[in-house]
Amino acid sequence: MSSFTRRHLFLGVGALGGLALIAPLLLANPYSSRLAQLLFMNVLLASAWNLVGGFAGQISFGNASLFGVGAYATSMLWLAGFHPFLTMPAAALLAALYGVAWGWPCLRLRGPYFAIATIGVAEATRIVANHIEAAGGASGLTLPLEQDLGPVLLYALGAVLAVASVLVSAAVRRSRLGLGLIALREDAQAAAASGVNVARQQVTVFAVTAALTGLAGGYYAVFTLYVVPEKVFGFDLSISLVLMVLVGGIGTVMGPVLGAGIYLFLEQFVLASLADIHLAAFGALLIFIILLEPRGAAPRLAQFVRLIRRRFG
């Protein structure tokens, strides 16, 4: 099993090249560049969530706690005078540390118990964040508008982060770690009896999930220039990640990417016109996916691609 092949690197560079080519299109106006930023952030978030939620089968409703740590780390370091790019590694590191701190005990739980514990941790984090005066308390932090990186740099940063997260996901999927995760997802006891250190594998992948989610938080702070606990630590954010991955296809590498795109489209163009019933629309979508298409769009798309190939290839 070759873990990270040249093909992956090639595809990654290709994807970045493609994103560079269409950049002028997306940077045409502030709205379209904001859409691109949101898409990059969603891809990063969904791929990160899928590492632990899809490969290890541990559904987290608490990733906002990691996102928030990243967003605040970047904001506070930026306000302290560091260049925003330099704050990114700190955002990743602090989120990973926080993720390991609570993931280490919680990942001993499985299934719905883990899911509920993550809600508890995330909500506790949100409430505490609201009370930390040094971080602006409930009113949050506003970042220096005059130091805005500008659309081109933000686009480049987002593209690199998003492509990197997909490559990480592909590498994990094909690695020894990925094999162990899928084994423990299918049967934790049998995996342990085959030598898989269930606890260590889960904590390891969760650290990666947390670091990527923290990067997404940092990126969010850099392009919105405003962080507030109710938003960056909010339950709605945690839920939207789950929905993205479910829509796209849980446990696959490209599913989260697809889901991030579909979600953004729905959020911006469909739900925006349904402002009054957007919660219900989300609820209905969730029920619909779970009852009718629990594997998401990715397997369908793969089927479709195979069909096209057979017909024309």
């Binding site: 299934g111 219900a280 609820g283 209905a284 969730l286 029920i287």
Partner: peptide
């Protein structure tokens, strides 16, 4: 969903909750 993994039912019921919440707002 009686024979599906428990987490899928959890998500399904979360969908029900969202719909009820929205109805109450309306």
């Amino acid at each position: 969903l009686r024979d599906s993994p428990p987490v899928t039912t959890l998500l399904l019921l979360f969908g029900v909750w969202l719909i009820v919440r929205n109805a109450l707002y309306l």
